[in-house]
């Protein structure tokens, strides 16, 4: 029994290539269903025009902008804090307290996104509404605050990993020369680890763009072009979740595949960059 190597290998090979081709299949499927829409009007128009189904306009411009606004804002809020938290884990308190904090961050990855969204509705939204006395509080800012909590564990763990992967010889040598922790960090660790930090930022941004529930639950979902961080906005992901037209052949439904294709391609770009940054480290 189990003396033959060929059959198991073929089974395993089939599973692996099956998964890979399924991933590729999703891309082909999305592209195939997007073609009619992209052909019917200019690609540029689809990506920049507003969404007015009543007038036959199915541009996804507002959603692309909404996705970018929310993701960039959440990254702006999460990145400095994550960076500081990684410094805390690796440099300021590398002992018990740092370890404990790292466990806390790891445990944060287990909190369901829908719970963040749910709490956001009742905690952040009223807070924003009362602070700025404008609108319903369901806005880009609220969503970005909650989203920054969702993406920060990913970034912290990657940052702290890249800080710790700086060769020991370097850090010991610089310590022996009498450098303070800050000097060690700025002169040795940062120059060595910045590519890992870049990877963390890319992956954090990718998570922010790909998240559906936070934006869907607390950014308000209006289809106008967002102009201000207190404006309500709709992301690409929330847009897909909201338009569930029963008519498979309607233009409205088909543009969803353009959204999905955009998200897929954005993901690919992110993965390529993250891999490129990781490789040269």
């Amino acid at each position: 029994m189990l003396g033959n190597d060929r059959i198991p290998k073929i089974c395993l090979q089939t599973a692996a290539w099956g998964c890979a081709s399924l991933t590729f299949g999703v891309l082909v499927f999305m592209a195939w269903l997007s073609i009619p829409v992209l052909r019917a009007s200019d690609t540029v128009h689809i990506l920049t025009l507003p969404w007015l189904p009543g007038q036959g306009q199915f541009g996804i411009g507002p959603m692309i902008l909404g996705s970018l606004y929310i993701s960039v804002l959440s990254l702006i809020m999460a990145a400095p804090v994550s960076f500081g938290a990684a410094i805390f884990i690796r440099i300021t308190r590398p002992g018990t307290l740092g370890k404990f904090f790292q466990h806390l961050v790891e445990a944060m990855t287990a909190i369901p996104t829908v719970v963040y969204g749910f709490i956001g509705i009742f905690l952040i939204v009223p807070l924003i509404r009362e602070t700025f006395v404008q609108g319903s509080g369901m806005c880009i800012l609220s969503a970005a605050i909650m989203l920054s909590l969702v993406i920060s564990p990913t970034m912290i763990l990657i940052f702290s990993q890249s800080i710790s992967s700086v060769p020991r010889q370097y850090t010991i040598a610089v310590e022996a020369m009498g450098a303070t922790p800050a000097q060690k960090f700025l002169m040795i660790i940062l120059p060595c680890a910045w590519k890992g930090i870049l990877t963390g930022l890319i992956l954090g941004f990718g998570r922010a763009v790909g998240d559906t529930l936070i934006a869907l639950m607390i950014s308000g979902n209006t289809i106008d072009f967002p102009r201000h961080i207190l404006d309500s906005a709709r992301t690409l992901t929330a847009h897909i979740a909201l338009v569930t037209a029963a008519d498979f052949d309607s233009m409205e439904f088909k543009t969803l595949f353009v959204c999905a294709l955009t998200l897929y391609l954005l993901t690919c770009v992110g993965v390529f960059f993250a891999r490129a940054a990781g490789k040269r480290q």
Partner: peptide, 21 residues
């Protein structure tokens, strides 16, 4: 590379794929 893409695909895209199929 394929599995990296698969891992970072937004779940809503997977959902839409399932729905459309």
């Amino acid at each position: 590379l394929m599995f990296d893409i698969m891992a970072s695909l937004p779940s809503i895209v997977v959902g839409l794929f399932g729905f459309a199929v």
